[in-house]
Each structure stands twice: as structure tokens, then as C-alpha cells.
Write a protein that binds this DNA or RNA. Structure first.
Length: 862
RNA sequence: GCCGGGAUGGUGGAAUUGGUAGACGCGCCGGACUCAAAAUCCGGUGCCAGCAAUGGCGUGAGGGUUCAAGUCCCUCUCCCGGCACCA
């Protein structure tokens, strides 16, 4: 054994051993229980970034932990290979998205291999491969036939200069990112997945997800947004049509002072035909992007439509306004406005001087309440509402329901905020939608025999719309039903479709004939899913929806795809810059900066290694190209080794929190590995022995052995249950700190030293697998670490006869005592009162109360 | 704007079920080894007062519940994630 730790050879050797033995390639024939452990599908951006490294390290630690705990573990990987960045790269450097993407995958795969992951590479897939998307197209046709997919108009961001549809992120302050033109909302036909048909199940089945973070379930619940309300018809006046509103507050119906409708509402269109000013206003409403964040923060504007409708309860004539704050795709596209009891209506009514009528009496004495100052939105007892006066919410809901239903002008309605999922994208680099438009037969799904609809891989988009639409070879085709000349659909699918089922395809990626086969029923559901919190809503909701749709086709078992979910935080790093005279900033990589700190550890100055001159500190930010603070994993792994990088990532923060990258922290992790190496080296110099089983130990040895088995228990719980790897590592560090202070004299002492080192190597092996593999070979030659079982706690080592208890007086710490476990509560109380420091605080005072928490503390209240 | 989350020493974080705040690491200070440096090892390190024993203060701000609050409740500030075409 070498005296010093050198990572290169160790890591290469372990990696080739794992590769050659195919130890991480698994199948369904194992007698062990299955464990499906997986990271979210990475986008092949070109270079591995620290977010990927973190993601894969977490699943790798769990996969290795479960493997040693007797599970048949699968840990697959694939590539989310369609999407916008490839088109952007194509526009920039004239390289075809396909070529760019496949090159990126090759680069990133090589980088991942250096990390020593326990991945089953035989299952690797890329969503841009026809072998993958042909099955997706087939699934699309199945959903299309079963009515889950339909076509309707949807609103997109339209760049009138580039004549192209823009993604929300390509709209900056209401303008196109390339042209700078004001973006307008445009209606185009699109395909929709009827996810709302599953709204109730998606909501109810959240209760099955005990292994999900509560916050993610809350976000999904709110996103689905189930609400109970009423649809109420308002009859039109002066010969115009009426309209229907949806409201969750029918109790305020008598307080309606106007009705507001969306600019896309049919009635608004109708009114605009006779009203030039209104038409102009509605055109102005079309300016700007379609994102909800943009709509919600835009200033509320509106215009009177000239129309009136009648309040069905009291017959009052109220004006109809067209307002930009009403969403056409929620409810009915029309709302009844009650300014006295709704924030948004209040703001709008105040701006346009519309009436406010109080119909709810504040429940408590509320001296602040003034309808001209703010809206009162709580529930309460009705006033100014005629026969409904004095009723509470439940009573008036029932009374109004009865009246409206008997008059057939309203009904109780459950409404969801969730909208159907528009999947059409007017883009080239995506999965073609397998539909053929025929003049005679309409929209025809492509038959299975004709799949896949291949995406030509040589096209290069130029930013002026979808090149597929200009490609006659792609567009021109024959109708599969009547054989007439027909036109192929040129829109491609949202990439969220690709990522909604890839985890099922991993189980049978080699099956050319079928989308999924019996093997999916062995592996699904995913037992442990790990990915960024930014996917808490959309990706996870779409994948859940897909799973249910696949279940209804008989392709998978169960209701939910992901049993346990862990949402990881982002990776951040320090930023450094110099300000240019024109105000712009040049950003310097933290790798190229030297830092000087004062005696308290505060940053005094930072200098650029290139020229030795000072730079400004810009705080800690998410790693990004724009701030030049991305840390490339390659040089880190080359310099310190993958084990150091993995250890740092797992130690610096718990997985859900943001992770701050610091070079000194990486060095600290490397120092710990070298220290462990030296300890094994020194132990080995005296010869390896059998690990401790029984026999006399010195008191300090006995104490160390107790700590060892406490550590085994803690690490097992931290890794397997809490998934808090940082505290597991800290506990191992503490154990080694204690180890280094103990004298391992005698035969039993040597055996204890062997026991501790073997245990540490096993405990650490999921996190730093390469160095642990090498150390294991030194401690137990001719055996394989990966074949070892996880450690079992020796309960007898945990037995201690004394515990430390703290004594508080009035909740303040005043002393500590060692207490034999056999003592009674009364005996402990006496001991506590006898403590000299405690006496100073209780002397001459009556003891009002005395609390004893067993094995923890005594609180004396005086 | 709406939904979700976060804030603890110089710093990343720990405190698992309301029970010793600051584990472990980094940084910094001091020491050993060395011609010297690096590496390594040993000790110290929340703030204030004190030679010390010890005491006072202290978990974003303000209030509350409790024998006891970083942890529970209310109000607020700032930061982060998502908002349906970034992935």
C-alpha cells in the first residue's frame, strides 16, 4: 500500500473494474427486492454542469446504499435531447441541431463516466432518437383515438417581424428577443391533451404520495385549483346576448356592480363590431406576451363595452366591461365584479369610478373597514341583500342554488384552475405530431405501420419560423385512409411530452416493437426520483398524467409513477467583476481569483490571478454563463478526483438546500480523504487482523466502540431514511476524530482498530466509492467491497450506564451532571438541587415547579 | 400579482418529536515539525465583560403561547423557485 493517497490510478482502476464486470447492469431475474433509483432526465447542453453532478451524485449514493442493503437496484440515464437550445445553437453557428445534440451527448457521457456512477448504461436513451419517439407517436395516436387529444385554438406569442412564434423566455419586456418588435398574442390551432379529464384523480392521488415533500404536493394541489362555485347566467339587455359567469362567491351576488369579460370573449368581439374605440382597445390588449406572470403584473385596464346585463337575483342592470385581468381560459371568461368584497374588482372599480356595494357585514368589530379604502374579502353575514339578509355563506349558497336551478339560470359547478395541455410547437427540433391533414378525411392519425414519422435531421433553422413547414419532402404525403394527396402536420410536440414517460422506457429500451413490455411492471413505479425543485409542478404533473393514461391503456400497473421524490437545490458560486467605464461589467471566474481575508475571516480583497490587480466581490449567485461563475467539473475531477468532488457536494449542504461551491471546501474534503487513507496505511503497517468480536477493552476503547455503533445507526438512518448525507458524513468525521485520539494497545485494541476502519470504509463507500474500494482491498484482500452487506448495529455496544443531564433554573442552563441510568426521578431531583452552581440560583427561593425530561434535562422553576 | 420555500457565528451548515444553540467542515489566530516553504500534526475560535470561575446577550424584525421556542401562532422585511412555449 502506498503511503499517500493518489486519486488517478485508484479511480481509473475501480471504474474499469466496474465496467468490465458489468456489475451495474441488472435484470428482472434477481430474487432480491427491486429498487428503481433515478435522476431527472438531463438536457444535453454540451458540458456537464455542477447541477448534473449534484443530481447524479445523490442518486448514485442512494443506489449504492440500497445495493449494499440487499436490493436489486437499477440506476439508468438518458438524454432530454429535443428542445430550443439546439435551435439557438443552429442559428448561431449554422450547425444542424441533430449533429450538435449528438456531439453534446458524447461529450457529457465521457464526463459522467469519470464520476464513477453506478449507472446501467445498457438502458441509455435519447428522446431525439426515432427508436424513442416512434413509440411516443404511437401513444399519441392511441390517445387521439380515445378522445384524450383534441384540436382547438390557443394563444401564442407572435413576433410580427421575424414571422415566428416565440417561447415565453424569448419575450423580453413584451418584445421579441431577436427582432425587438412588440410581440402580439395570436390565435392558432393546436393539439391539446385533455389533462383536465384527470384533474380529480391527479388531485386525489396526491394522498398516495407519502414519499413526496409536502411543499410539492401543496403546489400541485394549488395548481390544479379545485374550487366549488356556481355558474350564473346574466341575461342581456337591449337585444344583446347574455353571458355566464363562474363565481366561488355567490353570497356576494347581490353586490355585483359590473360584469367584466376577457378581450377574447365572443361578446366582446360582437360589441367591438359596432364600437371602433372598443375594437382599438381590444387590439391594444393583444400587445405583449401570453405568460400569466406578465398578465398578472400588468396594470389593470378596461373599457365599457356599451352593453348591459341583468342581475338574475335583483333585476339590476349592470354594465359589461372588457378587462385585461379576466382570463379567457379560466372559468367562462367572464366574472361578476363585487368591488366591496374582492381585491382585483376593488382596484379596477376605484380606477374607473364604478360603484361599490357592501353586502357582507364584517364578522368582528372592524373599525378599519371602509369600502372606499379596501375590500372586505372574508366570509360573513349578508346585509343589503333583501331576503338573504342575515344568512351566512352556507345558508345563502343553498338558497341561491335553489333559486337559480329552479329558474334554470344557474347551477353548482366544480371548477379547476388546471387547463388542458397544449402540446403543439411551431418548431423543428421536436417529435413530429403524427397527423396527416386530408381534404376528404380530415385529420388522420398516422397508422402504426407508418411510424415513426421521421424528423429530417439535416435542417438548420434560421429564426424565421419552422423549417419543416417549408420542406416539401416532409409536408407532402398521401392520406393513409383514402390515398389522396395530403399535407403532413408540421408542428412538433412540447418537450415535456418526451420527458413524461422516459423513465418507463428505461425498463425496456431494447424493445423495437412495443412502447412498453412486461418488464415495466417489474420495475415501475420509480422508488426514488431526484431532481430540481423547479420541476415541482409542470414536469411532475405531466408525468403523473401520462402514467394514469398509460394505466388506462393497460400498459402499466398502479396509479402513480414516483413513490419517493427528493427535490435538490441549485448550485451557487461566488462572483467577481470589474466595472468598465461605460458601466458594463467584466466577470471573472472564481477559479482565477486569489482572496485575502482578515483576522476575523472577512474578505479583505480579491485579485485576478491573470494580472494581480484587484476585482470587486459580486456576492454568491446561481452558476451561470452571464456571471462567469460556472465551475467546470472536469478540472476539479482531474485535480482532486471524483471522490473529492462527490464528498464535497454531499457534505456542503443537505440535498434540498442550495449548494455553495467553494474551493477551500473542496480542499477540505480532499484533506479528509487523505487523512482516512493515512489512518488505514498506519493501521496496516502493524498488519491487518480479524475485526473485533468480543473481549476486554480499555475504557477509552469501549467508549470508541460505543461511538462506532452509534455512528453506524446514525449513518444508516441518515442515508436510508432522512436522506441527509451531510450529517452522515459529519458523524463519520467525528468518529475518525475520536479514533485518532485512542491508543489501540493489545490484541483486542488492534481488532477494534480494524473494526472501526472497515466500518468507516463501508459507511463512506456510497459517497466516495473509488477510494473505499482501494482501502477495502488493503483491509480485506481477496474480497470485494461491492459484495459486502451493509453494517449491522451491535446493540450491546450501545449500552451505557451513565448519561449527562443538564440542569436549568428558570429555563437557563446552570449545570450538568452525570446520572446513572438506574436512578429514580426523585434521586435525580436531589442531585440536581445539590449542584453548587445551581444552589446559587435557587437559594432562599421557593421551588414552584420541577420538570424532568428523562436522560435529557431538569428544569427548576423558582 | 398569485402559489411554494428560505433567513442561525467571519463562512457552508448542525440541532431528527418544543428540551444543552452553533455538531462537522471552511476561514482565522497561536504552537510543533522545517534552513525555509508546502504538506502534516496539536490547541483556540458566537458577541460583550472578566486573569479565571462565571455572568449577560444571541437563531432576519416586532409581538404572542409555554416550565422551556431556531423549532408552534400572528404581523412584517428581504432573498430564492414556479406561473402552463427554458428545461
Amino acid at each position: 500500500m502506498q503511503e499517500n493517497y493518489v486519486h488517478n490510478n485508484i479511480e481509473k482502476k475501480a471504474q474499469s473494474k466496474w465496467r468490465d464486470s458489468k456489475i451495474f447492469e441488472v435484470n428482472e431475474s434477481s430474487p432480491k427486492p427491486k429498487m428503481y433509483c433515478m435522476s431527472m432526465l438531463p438536457y444535453p447542453s454540451g458540458k456537464l454542469h455542477m447541477g448534473h453532478v449534484r443530481n447524479y451524485t445523490i442518486t448514485d449514493v442512494l443506489a449504492r446504499f440500497y445495493k449494499m442493503n440487499g436490493y436489486n437496484v437499477v440506476h439508468p440515464i438518458g438524454w432530454d435531447a429535443f428542445g430550443l437550445p439546439a435551435e439557438n445553437a443552429a442559428m448561431k453557428s449554422k450547425v444542424a441541431p441533430a449533429e450538435w445534440t449528438y456531439q453534446n451527448i458524447a461529450n457529457m457521457k465521457a464526463q459522467l463516466e469519470n464520476m464513477g456512477l453506478s449507472i446501467d448504461w445498457a438502458r441509455e436513451l435519447a428522446t431525439c432518437s426515432p427508436d424513442y419517439y416512434r413509440h411516443q407517436q404511437w401513444f399519441f395516436t392511441q390517445l387521439y383515438k380515445s378522445g384524450i387529444i383534441y384540436r382547438k385554438n390557443g394563444t401564442v406569442n407572435w413576433d410580427p417581424v421575424d414571422q415566428t412564434v416565440l417561447a415565453n423566455e424569448q419575450v423580453i419586456d413584451g418584445r421579441g428577443w431577436r427582432s425587438g418588435a412588440t410581440v402580439i398574442k395570436k390565435e392558432i390551432p393546436m393539439y391539446y391533451f385533455a389533462i383536465t379529464k384527470y384533474a380529480e384523480q391527479l388531485l386525489a392521488d396526491l394522498d398516495q404520495l407519502g414519499g413526496w415533500p409536502e411543499q410539492v404536493k401543496v403546489m400541485q394541489r394549488n395548481w390544479i385549483g379545485k374550487s366549488l362555485g356556481m355558474e350564473v347566467e346574466f341575461a342581456g339587455c337591449d337585444g344583446f346576448d347574455g353571458l355566464t359567469v363562474f363565481t366561488t362567491r355567490p353570497d356576494t351576488l347581490m353586490g355585483v356592480t359590473y360584469v367584466a369579460i376577457s378581450a377574447e370573449h365572443p361578446l366582446a368581439e360582437e360589441a367591438a363590431n359596432h364600437n371602433a374605440a372598443l375594437a382599438k382597445f381590444m387590439y391594444e390588449c393583444k400587445a405583449g406576451g401570453v405568460s400569466e406572470a406578465e398578465l398578472a403584473t400588468a396594470e389593470k385596464v378596461g373599457m365599457f363595452s356599451g352593453l348591459y346585463v341583468t342581475n338574475p337575483l335583483n333585476g339590476e342592470k349592470v354594465p359589461v366591461w372588457v378587462a385585461n385581468y379576466v382570463l379567457m381560459n379560466y372559468g367562462t371568461g367572464a366574472v361578476m365584479a363585487v368591488p366591496a368584497h374582492d381585491e382585483r374588482d376593488f382596484e379596477f372599480a376605484t380606477k374607473y369610478n364604478l360603484a361599490k356595494k357592501i353586502v357582507i357585514k364584517p364578522q368582528k368589530e372592524d373599525s378599519n373597514y371602509d369600502p372606499e379604502v379596501r375590500a372586505y374579502t372574508d366570509y360573513g353575514v349578508l346585509v343589503n341583500s333583501g331576503k338573504f339578509d342575515g344568512m351566512n355563506f352556507e345558508q345563502v349558497f343553498a338558497a341561491i342554488e335553489e333559486e337559480l336551478t329552479s329558474r334554470k339560470i344557474g347551477q353548482v359547478k366544480v371548477n379547476y384552475r388546471l387547463r388542458d395541455w397544449g402540446i403543439s410547437r411551431q418548431r423543428y427540433w421536436g417529435c413530429p405530431i403524427p397527423i396527416i391533414h386530408c381534404e376528404h378525411c380530415g385529420d388522420v392519425a398516422v397508422p402504426k405501420a407508418d411510424l415513426p414519422v421521421r424528423l429530417p435531421e439535416e435542417l438548420i433553422p434560421d429564426g424565421s419560423g419552422n423549417p419543416l413547414a417549408k420542406n416539401p419532402d416532409f409536408v407532402n404525403c398521401r392520406c393513409p385512409q383514402c390515398g389522396a394527396e395530403a399535407r403532413r402536420e408540421t408542428d412538433t410536440m412540447d418537450t415535456f411530452v418526451d420527458s413524461s414517460w422516459y423513465f418507463l422506457r428505461y425498463t425496456c429500451a431494447d424493445n423495437q416493437e412495443q412502447m412498453l413490455d412486461e418488464r415495466v411492471k417489474y420495475w415501475a413505479p420509480v422508488d426514488q426520483y431526484v431532481g430540481g425543485i423547479e420541476h415541482a409542478i409542470l414536469h411532475l404533473l405531466y408525468a403523473r398524467f401520462f402514467y394514469k393514461a398509460l394505466r388506462d391503456l393497460g400498459l402499466v400497473n398502479g396509479d402513480e409513477p414516483f413513490k419517493n421524490l427528493l427535490t435538490q437545490g441549485m448550485v451557487l458560486a461566488e462572483t467577481f467583476y470589474r466595472q468598465n467605464p461605460n458601466g458594463s461589467k467584466d466577470w471573472y471566474s472564481p477559479m482565477d481569483i486569489d482572496v485575502v481575508k482578515d483576522a476575523k475571516g472577512n474578505l479583505l480583497r480579491a485579485t485576478y490571478k491573470g494580472d494581480g490587480r484587484e476585482v470587486e466581490y459580486g456576492g454568491i449567485e446561481k452558476m451561470s454563463k452571464s456571471k462567469n461563475n460556472g465551475i467546470d467539473p472536469d478540472p476539479i475531477i482531474n485535480r482532486f478526483g471524483a471522490d473529492t468532488a462527490r464528498l464535497f457536494i454531499m457534505f456542503a449542504a443537505p440535498p434540498e438546500l442550495t449548494l455553495e461551491w467553494t474551493e477551500s471546501g473542496v480542499e477540505g474534503s480532499n484533506r479528509f480523504i487523505r487523512r482516512l487513507w493515512r489512518m488505514v496505511f498506519e493501521h496496516q503497517q502493524y498488519g491487518i487482523v480479524e475485526r473485533y468480536k468480543s473481549g476486554e477493552l480499555t475504557p477509552e476503547q469501549k467508549k470508541l466502540r460505543t461511538q462506532l455503533h452509534q455512528t453506524i445507526a446514525k449513518v444508516t438512518n441518515d442515508m436510508g431514511v432522512r436522506k441527509q448525507f451531510n450529517t452522515a458524513i459529519a458523524a463519520i468525521m467525528e468518529l475518525l476524530n475520536s479514533y485518532s485520539k485512542v491508543a489501540f494497545t493489545g490484541e483486542n485494541g488492534r481488532a477494534l482498530s480494524q473494526e472501526v476502519l472497515e466500518a468507516v470504509v463501508v459507511l463512506l463507500s456510497p459517497i466516495t466509492p473509488h477510494v473505499c474500494d482501494a482501502l477495502w482491498n488493503e483491509l480485506r484482500p481477496d474480497t470485494e467491497l461491492l459484495e459486502q452487506a451493509w453494517l449491522v448495529v451491535d446493540e450491546s455496544a450501545l449500552d451505557v450506564d451513565e448519561v449527562e443531564m443538564v440542569i436549568q433554573v428558570n429555563g437557563k442552563l446552570r449545570g450538568k451532571i452525570m446520572v446513572a441510568k438506574s436512578l429514580t426521578k426523585d434521586e435525580i431531583e436531589v442531585m440536581a438541587k445539590e449542584n453548587t452552581n445551581v444552589q446559587k440560583f435557587i437559594e432562599g427561593q421557593a421551588i414552584k415547579k420541577l420538570v424532568v425530561v428523562p436522560n435529557k434535562l431538569i428544569n427548576i422553576v423558582v
